[in-house]
Design a binder for these strands. Structure first.
Ligand code: MN
Ligand code: MN
Ligand code: MN
Ligand code: MN
Lengths: 224, 224
DNA sequence: TTATTATTTTTGGCAGACCAAAAAAATAAA
DNA sequence: TTTATTTTTTTGGTCTGCCAAAAATAATAA
């Protein structure tokens, strides 16, 4: 079977290519995987041999169907574990990623099946990221970044794109957690910071933070 | 931190030395670890450098206090996971060992703590093996092998020493599972097979099987 | 378009974990 | 106590996954 290293390469290529099998560069991969570009060059050559990616010299790498399939099972394992750790074992959403980075490499289909079953086959992990099903299919949604949302419209937080403990703890402190309802009161012209209305309190968030928060527009409230 | 390989060596040395830090040979280790003796020679030299074992050339290897401590944390992780898989996720006792062989290498103390907590801090795994506590201490018991048990005495099955799916399935078929009560009716002289009385049925088990079943003598029934 | 910067590849090396075959040492049999 | 057998070690090699430094390419800026 494939090594942990291969799994991490495929998963990272998947993430960097934004799910749509577009080409990713060597440096990019090297940074995410904490290796030097020379190491990546060797690795992608090997993955090419294995027909898991198409690697074009001095240009870049993209997943093949076979590589994509493996990547999606790793992503599924990762997100199922994150959800399990949070929901069943009481870990915080800022803690689960690190542990899942290890657990995602446990090769046992039945195990993931049981975990998923116990969770009621969830479609989203604790960060709002979609969980691919057994076949690798992902529920697509029309979520947008908070930074792209309209003023004076109601939204629900559905996810985050930065999984760092620092950011997640920051959000938690301000109760900007998944499911929270909010609307944008005002966009500050000079730095694009947002003034949010959220459960009766006004909170100001930087444009950088707003880039990392995913929201869903809510249907307008019809008067009773 | 130490590699998976090192963890497996230490755990295997621990098991082969019967818990009491006695010396284990190279061939022995090689057989358990599915490598050739030459590989073991190299490995134990390195472990010696790391002060995790004392390796004496052409003689054998035994754990140091430091090595023993690591071995016990691996054994703890293994058995906690086995118990968790069986109790919380519904795996059969013949399935858990293989998965735990992988899970035991996940390095996260809090994870094991949570699992143990959820299980109510169990002292025995699904095979009846004792689970070391956080400090590595093991509850010692006065269990004996069924093959050493007396005729016409009541016993309870508390464990098995063979964890192979074949053996475990065989036991399950005859309901010789942990907790089952039995007594020995007769010992066949010529092959040492045992005739057991167990829940109203008589079952004959080979001496080989009896070697692998652990029992506890029950206090004699006082008349009501 | 040339010069500068960034990315990618090549080359040579290293550590961990393994094996095969041969030599040495220890054990068991005769 | 020799001889045979088993165990252990040595030696030379492989494979994976990594790095450092230098050379080649590509992309950007001037
Ligand atoms: Mn994650
Ligand atoms: Mn996630
Ligand atoms: Mn086991
Ligand atoms: Mn066990």
């Amino acid at each position: 079977m494939q090594s942990e290293t291969i799994e991490n390469y495929l998963k990272t290529i998947y993430h960097l290519s934004g799910g749509n099998a577009s080409v990713v560069g060597n440096k990019q991969l090297a940074d995410k995987l904490n290796v030097i570009p020379a190491t990546v060059t060797e690795a992608v050559k090997k993955l090419h041999e294995l027909k898991l990616v198409v690697y074009e010299k001095s240009y870049g790498t993209r997943l093949t169907a076979a590589g994509s399939k493996i990547a999606l099972t790793i992503v599924r394992r990762h997100r199922i574990w994150e959800t399990y750790l949070a929901k069943e074992l009481g870990f915080g959403w800022d803690e689960v990623h690190e542990i899942a980075e290890e657990l995602e490499h446990i090769k046992n289909d039945k195990l993931i099946k049981k975990l998923s079953e116990k969770l009621g086959h969830p479609h989203f992990d604790p960060h709002g990221d979609p969980i691919p099903d057994e076949k690798g299919k992902i529920r697509k949604s029309n979520f947008i970044k908070l930074s792209e949302a309209k003023v004076n419209t109601s939204y629900k937080i559905t996810g985050v794109t930065d999984h760092s403990p620092a950011f997640l703890k920051y959000l938690e402190k301000h109760q900007l957690i998944i499911g929270a309802l909010l609307s944008i009161k005002n966009v500050e012209a000079f730095d694009n910071s947002l003034l949010l209305q959220c459960r009766k309190k006004e909170i100001s968030v930087s444009s950088k933070a707003a880039e990392c928060i995913i929201v869903e527009e809510l249907p307008v409230q019809t008067a009773a």
